[in-house]
């Protein structure tokens, strides 16, 4: 950023800029920042198996765009200095160069297409890969302004979820005729995942569009009402406490629609789950 400003700024503005920067620095020192495991200026740590591919692609793009920007930036600065107005020196009269046009059309086209193909491959890999058989099914249904979460009981199976049945009384759209659902238990704004075990999500919404977003999982999925999303799965690779945030504007209380998300050792998960009992008959979210 500093690089960006120096050549074009006037002297006055750089002085004022400096004064402002100092004021900012003071704010930074005074502020009661909580400790974060990673730098506040960069990505949070990644704990999801799929996150590595996302981060890898991110760094590839960062590298390519970084090189492109530095190239354009320095070419511009160079030209501005070299071809600044000097008395008696005229500009070169040229209308262009077709060979150059071909070169600088082809190179970006090849790079962009390669990026598109590679990115798409990664995306298909994430989406097509079916979750392993031992995946823990968890249903998450958003509502204004909180998260209904449903876990399988001792049978390890979630009751069947039907989008059309999602309602105030039946937030998960549970088919009451399905016996697998009878032992399921529910929580509100509390999500617990076992570490190292795949988790398959069933995402839905009761009212408006919400979005399941956990930056440390490199995961974002819109939950459009009227539909159950069953293709999202993840595998947490480390334990820790995170926040499940709604990341699609959902109304007045949107800013505080978040839940506690913990990744715990498998045994702790079992203990936690055993302490929960299924709600009687209607299986509401709360």
């Amino acid at each position: 950023m500093k690089l960006l400003e120096t050549p074009l700024m006037t002297r006055t503005s750089s002085l004022r800029g400096l004064a402002f920067l100092t004021a900012f620095a003071l704010t930074l020192v005074r502020a009661q920042a909580e400790i974060r495991e990673t730098s506040v200026w960069w990505l949070p740590r990644n704990v999801n198996m799929f996150g590595h591919d996302v981060d890898f692609l991110f760094y590839i793009i960062l590298f390519l765009t970084g090189v492109a920007f530095i190239g354009v930036f320095f070419a511009m600065i160079l030209f501005l200095i070299q071809y600044r107005y000097r008395p008696g020196v005229a500009a070169i009269h040229t209308h262009g160069n077709n060979a150059l046009e071909v070169v600088w059309t082809t190179i970006p086209a090849v790079i962009f297409l390669a990026l598109a193909i590679y990115g798409n491959e990664q995306w298909s890999k994430m989406r097509r890969q079916t979750p392993p058989a031992n995946a823990l099914p968890v249903a998450v249904v958003g509502e204004q302004f909180g998260w209904n979460v449903r876990y399988p009981g001792p049978d390890g199976k979630l009751g069947k979820m039907v989008a059309a049945k999602i309602s105030k009384e039946n937030p998960f759209g549970i088919d009451l005729a399905d016996p697998a659902g009878l032992d399921d238990f529910t929580t509100y704004n509390e999500v617990v995942f076992p570490v190292g075990r795949p988790v398959r999500l069933y995402l839905g919404s009761k009212d408006v569009i919400h979005a399941f977003y956990v930056p440390e999982f490199r995961l974002y999925q819109d939950m459009v009402p009227g539909r159950v999303y069953d293709f999202v799965w993840l595998k947490a690779e480390a334990t820790g406490n995170f926040q499940l945030a709604c990341n699609q504007l959902c109304g007045q209380g949107h800013y505080k629609m978040f839940g506690k998300l913990s990744v715990v050792p498998e045994l702790d998960y079992e203990t936690w789950a055993k302490g929960k009992t299924p709600p009687p008959v209607t299986m509401t979210g709360r």
Partner: peptide
């Protein structure tokens, strides 16, 4: 324009979308 490339790539888009 260059920062748009990040969003054009679906896997990265799902991370930076709506941030």
């Amino acid at each position: 324009g260059l920062s748009g490339i990040f969003m054009a790539s679906t896997p990265v888009d799902i991370f930076v979308h709506h941030t």
